[in-house]
């Protein structure tokens, strides 16, 4: 348990340090889509986003980090148990 908490805190600290340097430019696929005129047509509205400010992004990041940890941990347990 101690290792898990320590690991999660290290990940969140690294994210907090790296976030101000993150680029908001379109990624390789988005840039390609723009150039060839491809548009997305969402069929599903996700409830969360990554936030606009550093503070919002950290909070959303923490939510995501904990959820991803929980889902992968749960999946691994399920596989072991099944």
């Amino acid at each position: 348990m101690k290792t898990i908490v320590k690991g999660l805190i290290i990940i969140i600290i690294l994210l907090a340090i790296a976030l101000p340097f993150a680029s908001n430019n379109p990624d390789g696929l988005e840039a390609t889509m723009e150039k060839v005129g491809l548009e997305e047509h969402p069929v599903y509205e996700a409830p969360l986003d990554y936030g606009e400010t550093w503070g919002q992004s950290i909070v959303m990041g923490m939510i995501g980090i904990i959820l991803v940890f929980g889902v992968s941990y749960g999946l691994a347990k399920l596989i072991k148990g099944a």
Binding site: G7, L8, I11, F69, S72, Y73
Partner: peptide, 9 residues
């Protein structure tokens, strides 16, 4: 298993 979770996070 915890390591797996931490890598995913």
């Amino acid at each position: 298993i915890p390591l797996l979770g931490l890598f995913a996070a």
